[in-house]
Design a protein around this nucleic acid. Structure first.
Lengths: 350, 350
DNA sequence: TTGTATGCGTTATCAC
DNA sequence: GTGATAACGCATACAA
């Protein structure tokens, strides 16, 4: 019974956790001083700062970010919506973004959309409820509802993994059409004659469609007829295998295939020896994504590498600049109105 | 100037977004009715409910979760700390957890620890600031600071990817020792003589050490001497290759290797043909994780599969039960005090 | 450098 | 079924 100030009948509404007041009382100062200790310790005198530091450590006080967020009308949370977390496609972007954000004291509220604009809208609505410092979305395809939500909210929005210069939201991305063009050009230059494109079997991956468009445009520019195959299999590796078999048993067998992503390409590449097809002699294979193991499989996979980590880092940098945390660097500003570029990584499969 | 109620000089403290009051005024009711519309619409009369629904849609009102969280002292956010987001190891657990959580109207605050207990503590402190409904951690290795934080907070903690029956926090996981034992037993049963274990080159992966312990114990129980190799290379694929070369050029070459994870195993498996080693004739290979492509590579990889998706789903289910959202199912309760089990997936590499 | 008063937008509580 | 009022825990604005 050393602490007689502790009331027996605790009001039901309190969360039960320590508050600034508890720390302030313990030290013998006002709450605001403790608040300042967390906001900007330099505004406190050296001795007071140390007394508060000791009390905070002793009591194990953790600031209530919810209350702080309400009082200041801004929070250090950033919302992010990506098609999926588990695949290799966005993994590096999520990780590099998360790391940058964490390093600046922000936290990441993550949701996945599975390439569905409805799920995305639902996620955006939920995330906006937390008044995030910023919202990061993937691609520029959104439902009208999502567009309305972000237009109404004061929250800055950054779109990644895409670049559409005419759009208002900040874009940190690259041109998917150009990615498709790069792959097609590479195979044409290598002298392949019958070059096909295999679409993603996942519905809603509109960016993959754009890569296909880029491929088709380049083919036409070179006087060739685009050949686009859409597999039925849902598993990407099975779909890749399905496409390989179908395209090689056609009337005029293809001698090169561009896949909408590396998982499809892996499916074809790894199935090839089992069905007696030699890569690249009989058929060249090009992927998209440069997923892990692309350089390890045999033959190693030629693929178009998107600036995955870079997009995460730049998106974070833009947000910090917007918040005034960091002065935007020249390089960051310069990149603002430009797409990042993809790179063809030439390996054994072509 | 049709809206004369809009004041020119907006007070600095407001966030500027629509509030419950705005909706209430628009409809001509009190705020609390609009609040009830979101909490439990059935408590409102049919006509009122519809009028509010219309106003919400018309105005584009998004509830302020921060204010709601403060008032109710609980939030529908769940914090999660995993070693890394981008690797294939935890991908399925994160995704299945995220999906389950989203389906129940919760949101996911995600942080990564990179197998560092200090980073984990930092993340936990930050996440606790949001008064999450629950906190999900990975493994049972935490800093004393983390232990103190979770002990003080009222927040329920669930540990995944591990199982230590004597611990207090809820455990949704499996025994890493047993995973190592399963791999060793499999190779012994197949008649392999000189079986080695290759450790993870990533520092701090204590669970991998436990798998190594399980392997070593099983070896001794069968009267064999454990051989443990720790690669120097940081890249897992390079480390796998390094281990393969070293273990096969030893005085007594091994004829089977258990790798701490599939990435290491892939490194060895895919390097083998390039250096003229036949798998499994000359050396069998077993991994851990059953990562994507394990069934596709040539030869396909024998591996120990952890219950990755299941852990995410069960962790979510436990949390909902704790919140009273769902009655816990019999199956869920029964699993509570038991480890989940790993499964050996036998393929061509052994 | 430190303190006092007030409000952030919602929900708990109690009243009608 | 609907409403008035008082918290929730912190940060802003202003004062000393």
């Amino acid at each position: 019974m050393s602490d007689s100030t502790k009331s027996e009948a605790r009001p039901r509404r309190t969360s039960g956790r320590l508050t600034l007041r508890d720390v302030a009382e313990h030290v013998g100062v006002s709450q605001i001083s403790v608040s300042r200790y967390f906001q900007d310790p330099t505004r406190l005198s050296e001795p007071l700062r140390e007394r508060i530091a000791r009390a905070v450590a002793e009591l194990g006080y953790v600031p209530n970010l919810v209350a702080g967020g309400l009082a200041s009308a801004r929070s250090r949370v950033i919302g992010m919506v990506i098609p999926n977390i588990s695949g290799p496609i966005f993994a590096n972007t999520i990780q590099s973004f998360s790391d940058a954000v964490t390093a600046h004291g922000y936290q990441l509220l993550l949701a996945s959309s599975y390439f569905s604009t409805d799920l995305e809208e639902h996620a955006v609505r939920g995330l906006l409820g937390w008044s995030p410092a910023a919202l990061v979305l993937t691609s520029h395809f959104h439902s009208p509802g999502t567009e309305a939500l972000i237009a109404q909210s004061q929250v800055p929005v950054i779109e990644t993994w895409d670049f559409q210069p005419q759009r208002k939201p900040l874009q940190i991305g690259f041109s998917h059409q150009e990615a498709g063009r790069i792959a097609a050009r590479h195979l044409i230059e290598r002298g392949y004659q019958h070059i096909a494109f295999v679409q993603n079997s996942v519905a809603g991956d509109t960016s993959a469609l754009e890569r296909g468009d880029g491929y088709a445009a380049t083919m036409r520019e070179h006087g060739r007829k685009p050949i686009v195959f859409s597999p039925k299999e849902v598993s990407p590796t099975h779909a890749g295998r399905e496409a390989l078999l179908a395209l090689l048993s056609a009337r005029i067998p293809v001698d090169a295939i561009v896949f909408a992503n590396d998982n499809l390409a892996f499916g074809a590449l790894l199935a090839a020896p089992r069905v007696g097809i030699r890569v690249p002699q009989q058929c060249a294979i090009v992927g998209f994504g440069d997923y892990p193991l692309a350089d390890m499989v045999m033959p190693s996979l030629t693929t178009v590498r998107p600036p995955a980590r870079e997009m995460g880092e730049l998106a974070a940098a833009r947000i910090f600049a917007l918040q005034g945390d960091d002065p935007p660097s020249i390089a960051t500003l310069r990149r603002r109105q430009r797409p990042l570029s993809c790179e063809i990584v030439v390996r054994e499969s072509s």
